[in-house]
Every structure is written in C-alpha cells, then in structure tokens.
C-alpha cells in the first residue's frame, strides 16, 4: 500500500495542480514575463562571470514570496541559484 502510494505520488492530479499553479503564479506575481527573467539571467551571468566561473546551464532564477523579517509581511523575492564551478583569481581581472 505504502509502496503503491509512493509510486503513484509523482503523477497524482494534486501534484500536477501544484506545479501548474507555481509556474503561473511566478508570472502573475510580478507581472514578469519569461523573456524578462531571461534578460535578468543574462545580465547576472555577465556580472558574476567576472569573479567566478559558473555553471550557466544549471543557473536557475525565479520569483517567489518570502516573509520579511522586520514585520513578518509577505514580500516578493527574486531567488537565484547559481552553481559555482571555480573562483577566478582576482588578480587576473
């Protein structure tokens, strides 16, 4: 039973609903188009590449919500996950 449940989990309709919602909300939330996010991504790569070698394929950037610490209110947040391959020698810049 448990195994069956586990096996079925990835295809349950509520998981599909959740994934679809998450994607649609990213764009609803800040009125941000996928192209706009791609632009930010390109700029980030440009800036960070001066200091470190990054995995451009693995770079993820998304809009989400987070609770602000000072007053606990919910604010939009831009989250970037940038895998670093190697730090560059600052002397060579």
């Amino acid at each position: 039973m448990d195994l069956f449940k586990w096996f079925n989990k990835s295809t349950s309709s509520k998981d599909i609903a959740k994934e679809r919602l998450k994607l649609v909300l990213i764009h609803d939330r800040a009125n941000v188009s996928p192209q706009f996010l791609e632009m930010i991504k390109g700029e980030l790569i440009k800036v960070i590449s001066d200091y470190m070698e990054i995995d451009e394929e693995g770079l993820e950037i998304k809009l989400t919500r987070t609770k602000r610490e000072i007053d606990d209110s919910t604010v939009p947040a831009l989250v970037a996950n940038i895998p670093i391959k190697r730090m560059k020698d600052k002397g060579n810049i």
């Binding site: 509520k14 609903a17 606990d72």
Partner: peptide, 30 residues
Amino acid sequence: NPMLIINRIKMEMVKRGDMMNIDDMIDILA
C-alpha cells in the same frame, strides 16, 4: 498579513492525492 480560509476541502480526495492539501496551499500562498 491577510489570513487564509481554505473552504470545501474534500478529505477523501485529499487522501487519494486528487486535491491539494493544506500544506500545498500554504506553501504556494505563503
């Protein structure tokens, strides 16, 4: 800080994985 009420939860559907549960919705709406 608006407060959320989740209405018309169908327990049997949640158990089958065919309806989003409370955690799913809190996760999304924060």
